[in-house]
Structure formats: structure tokens, C-alpha cells
Design a protein around this nucleic acid. Structure first.
Lengths: 292, 292
DNA sequence: CCGCTGTGATACCTTCAAGGCATCACAGGT
DNA sequence: ACCTGTGATGCCTTGAAGGTATCACAGCGG
């Protein structure tokens, strides 16, 4: 009758690993159990999900469909449990997530003033988190930097801000008041190429999403770590102005790049949620959040 | 670990009925089973969902939260199963839903031409269905008449069209070429007031959503039924021009109302879905679907 | 006051699905 | 020929979900 979220979660593990044994270990169950559960799921859906070939396991078309569509369902279930738990703890609360460098205080203050009996929480996110917190219910709205995967979300643009290059203070360019992107030719970019599309156009570099430099550190670094690498003269990073301005250390310098697309900051929320408080906060954010 | 959709469905039944016995009968299970399942759900969520009072059953705040948030989750599960089933049947297909009176042929033709190997289905909806089909996966896009509940959906406006009054052909106004809303003062409106907001402003009538007239027939009539009532001179209805034009019968006449807000037609789709085909169809719809 | 009715909860049993362990069947490599 | 890694089968145990019978209690009518 109802489909079983446990089985769906099992399926997701197998689809990720494409290997029943490893997936079973990840799930902390025995492999035969997993085999049977997947067969049961296939029977229940009336559809074959995997092509098992004694030697390798592959997704069928139906399996692909399930793999892409099931993630939001599981996230939705998690979000539901979080929100109900919060409602049960009696707290009429509202959580605003934000990326480091963005300041949501003004809008949060205004919301608190409008609803004195409500608890307004804030939650710091990272690049990886900024949308996730909406899908799993940890936050009601999230102040994000575009681009994001907008599926399942409503997004409202707040403001644009210039992007800056962060250089070692000792760098030959560090004394300039502004830069063109071409000034950076030959520098090593310490971040995934797709974070700065113009870089790719300039250098022709198309490595998927690793860091440049042959032995570069792994991707998805925290901003603090990136700055550490810059200070060590291992390369440069390009950041939104407010992000770079948020961390100040004497050994690195941020300089505006004038011929590069701006970074856009937006407010995002779950498209299925109630609208009252969220749209109220969106209005407040639009008036209180501006480029620095 | 994972929450159990069966229990959620049981909860929804109890929350609807606010009575364990009746809910159990609706679910075709015994009442003690339902009591235990709800208690188990409460234990699992760590939250009380109902205030049981020997005499009546009421939702707690957490229960309210669950009641409003669980519906999209259950619909999403249903949609998932539908889509996977369809993918399993091998058909790479795309389903376009539409309200009666709207003609989607042009856009469907264009999509078929662009993807000759894909099956493009169409699905007729009603006012009650037009959004439901998206939430439960019966359609990929739906050509709707606004306003709709936009939660969980993306919406793109297509065109506006005038609204007409449908009168008995024998009516004193049936020979006019156009009407003002005030011409209809004193007529009986055979549809929910909120379908025509201006009517409410004109007459001061504020009955919630029943039909006017003391012994009016029940709400949510099909268009054909409304026309039948009009022909029987029991009152008038206000419809979008294309809806009225779609059904022609000699005993009723449609006349444009010139001082009333237009009816807006839009394309809507599930906000969580993949975007490729949908946005392609949205572009086709924007160019091919126009006011008649 | 007593008994009737409708409410949800409890007790006890049965069935079946989910879990574990041991083992099999088979494809590739050494 | 043997070993290794793969997923599938067989058999057992446990626990959850289902059922029936019954209880405890609030309200109502006589």
C-alpha cells in the first residue's frame, strides 16, 4: 500500500555503491537482508530497479528515475520529523540560515520586533549546507549565494555585490586599487573552477571541479582554510566582497575585480511550506539586507 | 529510524475525523490497532499529537503541524511510485494536463515534433484536479486557471482572457453585446462567491463558498451541470471566455463582462522535478497557447 | 439511581516481515 | 585447479501489525 521509506533508503545506498555487499555494510545490515529487501521493493513497485550481472550491478531506467526522485522524498520526511518535533517542544520558532559574511541581524531584529513571543534562531551554513538546511527542515529560510539548485525551492534575489581577488599582501598586485581578470593570468586558482566561470573562459582550464595545481588540496575548503593557503602563497581565491571582508588578516589583501560577474545574494525557502511568516521575513530581508 | 508512511496515513485519517472509531472504519482496520499505531507514532516522534479527553479528540500544536505538512509528503510518495512505474514500463513519456476549454494541441504537437520517440500524453482535469495531478504525479505539467494554491509548484503565466456571463438565451440581457457587472444585480450566481470576487464586492454577499439562493445545488459543479442550471433559468454563472465558448448550446448565451478582472491561464509544475523537458514545454506553451 | 451508549485503552493471540547466520552458485583471475 | 568477490537461498528468531474480547469512563434518559 504505502511505500516503505526504509526500503527506499536501502535502495539509495545500493544505487550509490552499485554493490550490495558494500551498501549493506554502510547500512549496518547483512547482505542477504539487503538483497531480499531490494527484491521486495522491486516486486512492490512492479518494476526492475537493477540489472544484476553476477559481476556488476547497474541501474535500470526505472532505477535511475527512483534514484533522482527519491532524494527529495527522504529529505522531506526528515524535514517533517524535525518540524513536528520543534512544534511539539512548544516553541513557536523560526530559523534563519545564512552564509558566512552575510549579516542577517537587521531582518532578524525586525522579525523579532514584529513577533515578540516567537523565538527567532539563526544558523550558520556553508556552501555545501546552504540549501540542504531547507530540504531537511533545519531552517525555514536561508540567505544564500547563487547559483544554487533551485529545485523544490522558491528564491528571491536580495542584492548583488562585486567579487574580489584575495592575494598575499606581499604579492606584486596587492598594492593596486582594482584588478582586471587578465591581471591574474598565470596565478593558481585555489578553488573549484566552476566557482568562477570567467576563469575557465580565460584560462581554458576545464578540470571538472577539483582545485588547480597538480597537488592541490581537496575541494570544498572552508573560507578560513582558503585564506590560509593564500597566505602561504600557494595561489589566489576569488570571493564575494562581503565574504572576503568578513575575515581580516594582515597577510592577505582583497582587491576588487572590475570585469567579472557580480555575486548574487538571495533568500530561499522550501516551496511547499506555509507562506505567512516566510513572506513576511522575505519582505523584511529585502529592506534590511543590502550590499555592504 | 525512518518514519513510517503507514502511520502517517493513519494519523491523517484520525486528524480528519477527530474520532478513532470512525477513522478506523475509514481505514478498514480495528479501532484498537489504530489507537496503538497513533501512540507508537507519538512515541517515535517524541511528541503528543492528540489531546484525548474521553469525550472528544483534538489536535495539539504538533498535531496541527503534522497535519498540514504531511499531506505533500504522502502525495510525493504517491507521485514517486507513479513516475517510477511509468519509467519501468519503458515509456519515456510526458503528460500534459489541461482544464476543459483550454487547447494544448499546439504545444503538444511541437513537443512531439522535437522528441519523436517520446510519448506525449494529455489528461483532462477539473477545477478540483488541476493542481492535484501534479502533486500525485499523474501529470508533469498542468495548464491551469489561476488562482491556485502554489505551494510546492512553479507557475508561469501564459495569457489572460476576459470573463463572460452565461445567461439563458431568453434572458432580457441576452441580446446585448457586452455587460457591466452592475447589469447583473439581482441575478442569482450559481457558483461559489469566491470564484468571482467582484460579485462579492457588488452584492455584499459573503457566504463562505456555498451557492447563492436558499436551496441552491451543492458547490463544485461541473461546467456542464452549471450550464444545465442556467438553461433552466435558475441563475447565471461567470466563466472564462474559452470555457464558455467550448460548450455551445442554443438555450444559453455568453456575453463579455467588461468591468471585471480577467481570468489568467498559467502553466504549473512540481517545483522538485527535473527541469529539462518541463522548461522546454513551458517555452513551447508560451508561444503556442494564446487567448482564443 | 441505574442502565445504555459511545469513547479510547488494555490484554492476549496470530501472522508475517525484517533481521541474522550459514551456505550456495557462479564469473574472473591467478 | 583454486581462490576471491559477487548476489541469491534456506532456515531460524524477533518484533511489529493485525485481529477479538474486554475494560474504564463520561454523558444521557428513564
Amino acid at each position: 500500500m504505502d511505500l516503505d521509506l526504509r526500503k527506499i533508503r536501502y535502495f539509495m545506498a545500493v544505487a550509490r555503491e552499485l554493490n550490495f555487499g558494500r551498501a549493506a555494510r554502510d547500512l549496518h545490515i547483512a547482505q542477504p537482508v539487503l538483497s531480499r529487501q531490494i527484491r521486495a521493493l522491486e516486486a512492490e513497485l512492479g518494476v526492475q530497479l537493477f540489472m544484476r550481472d553476477r559481476r556488476r550491478t547497474e541501474l535500470t531506467a526505472a532505477g535511475e528515475a527512483l534514484y533522482t526522485e527519491a532524494a527529495p522524498l527522504l529529505a522531506g520526511a526528515e524535514a517533517l520529523r524535525r518540524r513536528v518535533g520543534r512544534a511539539g517542544r512548544g516553541a513557536d520558532s523560526f530559523t534563519v540560515a545564512f552564509m558566512p559574511g552575510l549579516t542577517v541581524t537587521g531582518a532578524v531584529r525586525a522579525l523579532t520586533a514584529a513577533h515578540p513571543r516567537m523565538t527567532v534562531d539563526v544558523l550558520r551554513t556553508s556552501w555545501a549546507d546552504q540549501v540542504e538546511v531547507l530540504r531537511d527542515g533545519r531552517a525555514d529560510v536561508s540567505c544564500v549565494r547563487l547559483p544554487i539548485d533551485q529545485r523544490g525551492l522558491k528564491v528571491r534575489a536580495l542584492f548583488d555585490e562585486p567579487r574580489v581577488a584575495v592575494l598575499p599582501t606581499a604579492h606584486r598586485l596587492a598594492c593596486k586599487s582594482e584588478l582586471h581578470l587578465s591581471d591574474l593570468a598565470g596565478e593558481t586558482l585555489l578553488q573549484p573552477y566552476d566557482a568562477v566561470p570567467e576563469w575557465q573562459a580565460m584560462t581554458g582550464d576545464t578540470a571538472p571541479s577539483g582545485l588547480s595545481g597538480p597537488s592541490g588540496p581537496p575541494a570544498a575548503l572552508a573560507v578560513e582554510e582558503k585564506l590560509e593557503h593564500v597566505a602561504a602563497e600557494r595561489g589566489v581565491v576569488v570571493l564575494p566582497q562581503s565574504t572576503a571582508g568578513f575575515y581580516h588578516r594582515p597577510d592577505v589583501t582583497a582587491i576588487a575585480i572590475i570585469d567579472i560577474g557580480p555575486s548574487r545574494v538571495a533568500l530561499a525557502w522550501d516551496a511547499t511550506r506555509r507562506t505567512r511568516l516566510i513572506s513576511e521575513f522575505a519582505d523584511l530581508a529585502a529592506t534590511h539586507l543590502r550590499a555592504p
